[in-house]
Design a protein around this nucleic acid. Structure first.
Length: 609
RNA sequence: GGGGUGGUAGUUAAGUCGGUUAUAACGUCGGCCUGUCACGCCGAAGGGCGCGGGUUCGAGUCCCGUCCACCCCGCCA
C-alpha cells in the first residue's frame, strides 16, 4: 500500500517547475530517468510525460530519504516530496527545468524495475525488434511520448475543426459483408452464421455514401481501417483515416474543407503557415514529370520523355531502341547535372535496384565536351542525329549524366520514379524538415483515368472503385475508348507521400450502368456485390463526394518520424506480426469447430474448389 | 510472389587474408565520492557469434539451407 499516494496529491508535473516556483513545497511522481550518486549527494532526474526535473537528496534535507535514494535504480517509479530551490550557479541550460531543482524531504519507492533491455533515452539505441518486443518501455522514451501526444492533438484538432464547420461525427461498422475487388479483406468467421464470414472494413466507403443518401450531408469520422495487404514503411494492416463525405458539393468545396483542416493542423502543431490554396497538378503531368502520382516536389531531377524523339529518328540505328519502339514501349531519362557524379559502383547499385523492379537494365550516358556519349554501350551504334536530339530534349550539357529507362510504360515509370528518389536522397537534395521554407510541398493530383488496363487478364478494371464519377465529356467514351476516360478523383500529396484521396461519386444510375458495362460487370454481379448501394442511389441520392486522409501518415510527417510504426502505439512488423503479443496466434481445433472452419493439417492438400 | 540489406554479451557496435583465451562502449553488480546533469574513479560478472548442415587440421569469418527483422517492386489508396 502506497502511503504517499494516500497522504498527498501530486502537485506538479516533471516539466513545469520554473524559477518562479522557488520556495514551494511540491510532490512529484515519476520514473528515475537517470541517477548520479555522489555518496553524500544523490542527483535523480525524475521523468514523467511532461518532462524531467532534477531531484537532490542530501542528509541535510532528509536523512531517511537520502539513505533510501542510494538504492534507486533506473526506471524505479517513485514519489518525491521536497522544496523547489534555485540551482544558483549550476543552471543546466539544456533542460527546460534547468534553473531549479527539488530538495527532497521525502521519498517513496512505488515499484522497482529490473535491469532494462535498453536505455530509455531519446536517441534510438536499440534495434526496432527489441523496441517492439518491449513496446511499453519504448513508449516511455520522451521522443515516443511526443509522437503519441501529437497524435492525440491531431485527433482533438480534427474533431474541433469539423465540429466548427457543421460536420457530424458518425460511426460505421467494422464487421461488414465481404465484397470482392479492392484491397484484400481480413475475414472473421461468424460463430452463429454457420460457415459464413464477416470482413473487416477496408474503408467506410459505402456506408459513408449511405449517410449522404440518408441526408447527413456533412460527415466525418476518425476511423480504423483494415487491409490484408503486404506492408511497407508507410503501410500498416490496420490504420486510421480521417474520413469525410459531403453532399451538394463540387471538388473545390471538398478541397477547401480539407485545406482548412491541413492548414489548421500545421499551424497549431508546427506553427507553419501552409499557403492556400494548395496547388494542383494533372495526373498525366505528374506521371510524365515524376513517374508516379505522388511526386516529391522538394527537388528536381524530373523525368524527360524522349519517346517521340526516338521515333522521329526511327531508333537511330540502335537495334534495342527499334525493338522497344516496335513493342510500343516508351523512353525516359533523368538528367543528373555535372555537379553530381556517380561512380561505377554507385551506378551498378542503381541498376540492381532497377532490375529488382523488372528492368532489363539501366542505361547511362556521360556527356562529353562535344556532346558525345561515353560510358554507354549505345555510343557506337547510335546515330549522331539521334544522340544530339536526345541531348537537346533532355537539356544535357557537357559533364552531365543521362540515366535512361525504356520499355513498358508502367515499368519505366516505376523504375525512374524510384531512381529519382534514390538520387535525391543520395545527393542531399531533400531538405530536412524545418530547415528551409517550402519544406512542406502539398499538392493535389487531379483527373486521373477512371480505368486501368489489367495486363494479366486483358480487361479494364476500375483504377480505384467503380463509384467514381467520370468527366461528363468522357461519358461518351466509356464503351468505345475506356482508357481515355478521366474522372473526378483526387489525391492529396505531401513530399512524396500520398496522405489522402477521394472522389466525387457517381450518383447517376444511368452512368453507373455504363461504368459497370465497361468493366464487364453484369447486372446480376453488380446486384450481388453492391446491391444495397445501387438500391440506395435510386431513392434520391444527392450529388456527393468525399475524401479520406491517412491520419498515421499525417502524424508521421508532422512529427518527422522515420516510419509509420513510430506514430502507431502498438504497430505490426512488415510481416504483420506483433512482436510483443505474438499475434497472430494459433487457435484450438475446438475453436475452429465452433466457427465452422475446417482445420487444414500441414500435409493435407486443400480440396480443389 | 520477386529483388536487396542485416542478425556477434542485457543493448549498440568492431572483429583484417579462416588461426591461441571473441573486442569496446553503454547498461548491470560491488566499493569510493556533496554539485552532478554523457558525473568521475577502482573492481567484477556476463556471449561462443540467429538456427541447422557442410568444407577445413581449424569457421564469427567460406558454402548450402532455414528463421527473424528491415527496405523496395508486385499488391495496396
Amino acid at each position: 500500500m502506497s502511503k504517499m499516494i494516500d497522504e498527498v496529491k501530486r502537485t506538479h508535473s516533471c516539466g513545469e517547475l520554473t524559477a518562479a516556483d522557488v520556495g514551494k513545497e511540491v510532490v512529484l511522481f515519476g520514473w528515475v530517468h537517470s541517477r548520479r550518486d555522489h555518496g553524500k549527494a544523490v542527483f535523480i532526474d525524475l521523468r514523467d510525460r511532461m518532462g524531467v526535473t532534477q531531484v537532490v537528496f542530501e542528509p541535510g534535507f532528509d536523512a531517511a530519504a537520502h539513505e533510501l535514494a542510494g538504492s534507486l535504480r533506473l526506471e524505479y517509479v517513485i514519489g518525491v516530496r521536497g522544496v523547489v530551490d534555485s540551482r544558483g550557479g549550476n543552471i543546466n541550460p539544456k533542460m527546460k527545468t534547468g534553473e531549479i531543482e527539488v530538495h527532497a524531504t521525502g521519498l517513496e519507492i512505488f515499484n522497482r524495475s529490473e535491469a532494462l533491455p535498453f536505455v530509455i533515452e531519446d536517441e534510438v539505441n536499440a534495434e526496432e525488434t527489441t523496441r517492439l518486443a518491449y513496446r511499453y518501455l519504448d513508449l516511455r522514451r520522451p521522443a515516443m511520448q511526443r509522437m503519441l501526444m501529437t497524435r492525440s492533438k491531431i485527433n482533438q484538432l480534427t474533431r474541433e475543426y469539423f465540429a466548427q464547420n457543421g460536420f457530424l461525427e458518425l460511426e460505421t461498422p467494422f464487421l461488414v459483408k465481404y465484397t470482392p475487388g479492392g484491397a484484400r479483406n481480413f475475414l472473421v468467421p461468424s460463430r452463429s452464421g454457420s460457415g459464413k464470414f464477416y470482413a473487416l472494413a477496408e474503408s467506410p466507403q459505402l456506408f459513408k455514401q449511405l449517410f449522404m443518401v440518408a441526408g447527413f450531408d456533412r460527415y466525418f469520422q476518425i476511423v480504423r481501417c483494415f487491409r490484408d495487404e503486404d506492408l511497407r514503411l508507410d503501410r500498416q494492416p490496420e490504420f486510421t483515416q480521417i474520413d469525410v463525405e459531403m453532399s451538394f458539393v463540387t471538388q473545390d468545396d471538398i478541397f477547401t474543407a480539407m485545406e482548412g483542416l491541413v492548414a489548421r493542423l500545421w499551424k497549431e502543431l508546427l506553427g507553419v503557415d501552409i499557403p492556400l490554396p494548395i496547388p494542383r497538378m494533372e495526373f498525366d503531368e505528374s506521371m510524365r514529370r515524376f513517374g508516379n502520382d505522388k511526386p516529391d516536389l522538394r527537388f528536381g531531377l524530373e523525368h524527360v520523355d524522349f519517346t517521340e524523339v526516338v521515333r522521329a529518328h526511327s531508333g537511330g540505328g540502335v537495334p534495342l531502341f527499334e525493338s522497344i519502339l516496335a513493342q510500343g514501349g516508351i523512353f525516359k531519362a533523368i538528367r543528373l547535372p555535372k555537379a553530381h557524379t556517380l561512380s561505377r559502383k554507385e551506378f551498378d547499385e542503381l541498376e540492381k535496384d532497377a532490375k529488382g523492379m523488372g528492368s532489363a537494365g539501366l542505361g547511362r550516358a556521360k556527356i562529353g565536351e562535344d556532346g558525345s556519349w561515353s560510358q554507354t554501350p549505345f555510343a557506337k551504334t547510335i546515330s549522331d542525329a539521334l544522340r544530339e536530339a536526345i541531348n537537346a530534349a533532355t537539356g544535357a550539357e557537357p559533364g552531365d549524366t543521362l540515366i535512361f529507362q525504356m520499355g513498358r510504360a508502367a515499368m519505366v515509370h516505376a523504375v525512374l520514379a524510384n531512381i529519382r528518389l534514390t538520387l535525391g536522397k543520395k545527393f542531399d537534395m531533400i531538405p530536412a524538415y524545418g530547415t528551409r521554407d517550402g519544406d512542406w510541398r502539398f499538392l493535389w493530383v487531379v483527373n486521373p483515368p477512371l480505368f486501368e488496363f489489367d495486363e494479366e487478364n486483358k480487361t479494364w478494371v476500375a483504377a480505384h472503385h467503380a463509384f467514381t464519377r467520370p468527366h461528363d465529356g468522357d461519358v461518351a467514351h466509356l464503351q468505345s475508348d475506356p482508357g481515355r476516360v478521366k474522372c473526378h478523383r483526387y489525391d492529396l500529396v505531401l513530399n512524396g507521400f500520398e496522405i489522402g484521396g477521394g472522389s466525387i461519386r457517381l450518383h447517376d444510375p444511368e452512368v453507373q450502368k455504363k461504368v459497370f458495362e465497361a468493366l464487364g460487370i453484369g447486372e446480376d454481379e453488380a446486384r450481388q456485390k453492391f446491391g444495397f448501394l445501387l438500391d440506395a442511389l435510386k431513392f434520391g441520392a444527392p450529388p456527393h463526394g468525399g475524401i479520406a486522409l491517412g491520419m498515421d501518415r499525417v502524424a508521421m510527417l508532422l512529427t518527422g518520424a522515420q516510419s509509420l510504426r513510430d506514430v502507431v502505439a502498438f504497430p505490426k512488423t512488415l510481416r504483420g506480426t506483433d512482436l510483443m503479443t505474438g499475434a497472430p496466434g494459433e487457435v484450438t481445433a475446438k475453436q475452429l469447430e465452433d466457427l465452422h472452419v475446417a482445420p487444414i493439417t500441414k500435409n493435407e492438400t486443400p480440396a480443389a474448389s
